[in-house]
């Protein structure tokens, strides 16, 4: 293992985390029975909110908070459309995507007076872990990751724990499998779905914030580049389970890292084509490895109390 390999791992993590975060969000939402293809729009909202708040306060941590608020808000809108009004989930979340992409791009000139890209803001700094960062080979890993990278993996464990090891998680999954039965068992279906969808918004927004104040230090219109959709693909591929889906996200991140690297180290395949690699991989994975889908049975069905 040489320095090139470890740096590839690092960039795979850097590029994987902004897919993992929305994936976790999508997981929570879909496990509760609400298909959320609006992750992309929610990410864009979070990316802009993070930069805007950081720009005003000078503190990227407050920027993260701003992203969470924007994510909760977008989740609230989706929940009202799909749970309260019982609108079609695919259509409603498409609306979130369109509004997210449009409103963020429209707000850039309103806030900063320039089109397209915001001015730079302070980034979330990377942490150096004393001791570990001095290790041979893996040392650079522990000096180039940020608290958000570690936080993401902690969050994945928390999501897994809550969903599959706690009563609250059981309730969410029960609502997602059969809202009617869950309702009969005394579970508050509407409240559960609201919480799940708003949580998914917050996670997706954090993923967007990662792109804008960890990876970069600016907001650019449509900077998420389909990562919200890759998260969905990872979810389908991982059959709505945390770890396989997370592994898929890392693979997509690796493909991204590989494409970036090819720009520097020529490997005979045109860079523009390699940029399509994560999407091609996602398609191939969906085409070959996944059996018939095993989505939560209640996904897509609005709940009407009989």
């Amino acid at each position: 293992m040489d320095i090139l390999t470890i740096s590839l791992v690092i960039s795979a993590i850097h590029l994987g985390v902004p897919i993992i975060l929305p994936m976790l969000g999508g997981l929570v939402s879909e496990r509760s029975g609400v298909m959320n293809i609006g992750l992309e729009g929610m990410m864009l909202g979070g990316a802009l909110a993070a930069v805007a708040v950081t720009f005003i306060t000078g503190n990227p941590w407050l920027g993260l908070l701003g992203a969470i608020v924007s994510g909760l808000l977008s989740g609230l809108i989706l929940a009202i459309l799909t749970v309260t009004l019982r609108g079609n989930q695919v259509v409603a979340s498409t609306a979130i995507n369109l509004i997210g992409a449009g409103i963020t791009a429209a707000l850039v000139p309103i806030i900063w007076g320039v089109d397209g890209t915001s001015p730079s803001v302070p980034k979330i700094p990377s942490m150096t872990i004393p001791g570990l960062s001095d290790l041979p080979v893996v040392g650079p890993l522990f000096s180039s990751l940020t608290a958000m990278d570690y936080g993401t993996f902690v969050l994945a464990i928390v999501v897994w724990w809550v969903l599959f090891r706690t009563d609250a998680g059981l309730r969410i999954r029960a609502v997602g499998e059969s809202a009617e039965s869950a309702d009969a068992a005394g579970i508050a279906v509407v409240r559960t779905r609201f919480i799940a969808v708003m949580t998914s918004g917050a996670f997706a927004a954090l993923g967007g914030a990662y792109l804008s104040i960890v990876t970069l230090d600016v907001f650019q219109a449509s900077m998420t580049q389909g990562r919200g959709y890759l998260a969905l693909a990872a979810l389908v591929f991982g059959k709505w389970r945390v770890w396989p889906a997370l592994a898929a996200c890392i693979v997509f991140g690796l493909a991204d890292a590989f494409a970036l690297r090819s720009q520097i180290v020529g490997i005979g395949i045109p860079h523009e084509l390699l940029l399509a690699l994560p999407y091609v991989l996602a398609l191939v994975a969906l085409a070959t490895f996944v059996g018939r889908t095993s989505a939560p049975a209640g996904v897509g069905k609005p709940f009407v109390r009989a």
Binding site: G41, I77, L81, T82, T84, L85, R86, G87, N88, V91, A92, T94, A95, I96, N97, L98, I99, G100, A101, G102, I103, A105, A106, V108, P109, I110, D115, A221
Partner: peptide
């Protein structure tokens, strides 16, 4: 002085409203 992205906001709002129509 209004960003042309306004158009995609309107299209998103239209879709949102159509989603809410059954209700």
């Amino acid at each position: 002085g209004i960003s042309r992205e306004m158009v995609s906001v309107v299209s998103g709002l239209v879709v949102a409203f159509v989603a809410a129509q059954p209700a």
